[in-house]
Design a protein around this nucleic acid. Structure first.
Length: 310
RNA sequence: GCGUAGGUGGCAGAGCGGUCAAUUGCAUCAGACUGUAAAUCUGACGCCCUAUGGGCUACGGGGGUUCAAAUCCCUCCCUACGCA
């Protein structure tokens, strides 16, 4: 059997999970979630995590694998996903990667090799006190190459670059390697109006299903409000509501607004990858996928990445 | 009805004679993205143009003072709180 994987991506509330299960059933696949928050245990309602029932017996990987007290990163995700892919191939099934976290998807599809430098939280805390100008100057001294290209006003990026340069001298170029399998990326693109409607329905449903209670539970389990804020608007605003900082109405409107902004950010990310085949209906996806699976393998990773990187 | 405080761009809210098409925040639109990616960050944001420049219309309505007004004066309309 040829090594082929399917990627289903798209913004929130576009119907990825449901589509993935359907496809999985049709092509004998198993699902890998590429979602930066669904990896956490206990973040269910707010992340729109698929339920046991909805899985319909299809195995799902990289879900509920870490405590929300821990910080999970792309590198952790890559490990999880790579392992899952191999496991699925070993069972003679097709891996279906589903998610909305662009960086996570790219990490596996392009088999990105990240610099072997773990986050140094102490250093980061120190650097955070500095201005971006100061950090930029530091980086320039450490690694002028990276400094040339970096977003010099972005503290996150500067900190990470300095962190790497301090340990291994310089920030290596992004190492994209050809994966040992072929991927078809299918993106769900819906008209703005529909997506907005879906988002509203989704948020309201989350609230109805007990999002506020879930947030409270996270707090009671020992997480700080600050940490809970980090889990995104689905948790941040309910958390603020629980602290009486905002009204219920404000909570809802904030969530709707930020959800839309998030969806757009996701699309901005996905748009640059010209390999993605955009669809709006299930049937289109099925057709594409069936055709892809029938085709002879054609690993042309090099061309693909060239396309991708513009 | 008297008193006071106000009416500024989609909203909130600065400015209180020239350097103001108007600080800032939010929203909106576009974009970036090398271990927090949910994150972080950038740009645009009155209208029009031959666009690192030019023109037009703007700070509740109308009138006035001034070389010059969002900024001062008069008047009208409206809002909030206070007193009746």
């Amino acid at each position: 059997m040829s090594r082929k994987t399917i990627v289903i991506l798209g913004p929130t509330a576009s119907g990825k999970s449901a589509l993935a299960v359907k496809i999985a059933k049709k092509i004998n696949g198993e699902i890998i979630s590429a979602d930066s928050r669904q990896v956490y245990k206990g973040l269910n309602i707010g992340t729109g995590k698929i339920t046991k029932k909805e899985m319909g017996g299809i195995p799902h990987y990289c879900l509920d694998i870490v405590s929300p007290k821990k910080i999970f990163t792309v590198a952790d995700f890559k490990k999880c996903a790579d392992e899952a892919i191999e496991k699925i191939f070993a069972r003679n099934k097709t891996p279906i990667i589903v998610g909305g976290t662009g960086l996570y998807i790219q990490a596996i599809v392009d088999n990105i090799v990240l610099p072997e430098v773990k986050p140094d939280w102490k250093l980061r805390k120190e650097l955070e006190k500095k201005t971006t100008e100061e950090m930029f100057a530091m980086l320039k001294k450490l690694d002028s190459e990276r400094a040339k290209k970096i977003d010099r006003k972005n503290p996150r990026r500067l900190i990470r670059a300095i962190e790497i340069a301090k340990i291994i001298g310089k920030v290596p170029n992004l190492d994209i390697q050809c994966p040992s399998w072929e991927a078809l990326q299918v993106g769900i693109k819906l008209p703005d109006e529909i997506l907005k409607e879906n988002i509203e329905k989704r948020i309201k449903k989350m609230l109805k299903n007990g999002l506020i209670a879930e947030t409270k539970k996270l707090k009671n389990s020992g997480l700080s409000w600050k940490r809970i804020y980090e889990f995104g608007f689905e948790y941040k605003y309910p958390a603020m509501f629980l602290q009486n900082k905002i009204s219920k109405d404000d909570m809802l409107s904030k969530m709707l607004i930020e959800n839309w902004q998030y969806a757009k950010r996701q699309m901005t990310w996905f748009k640059r990858d010209k390999r993605i085949k955009w669809i709006s209906k299930e049937k289109q996806a099925e057709k594409l996928i069936k055709y892809f699976l029938k085709q002879n393998p054609q690993l042309s990773c090099f061309d693909n990445t060239k396309l991708y990187l513009v």
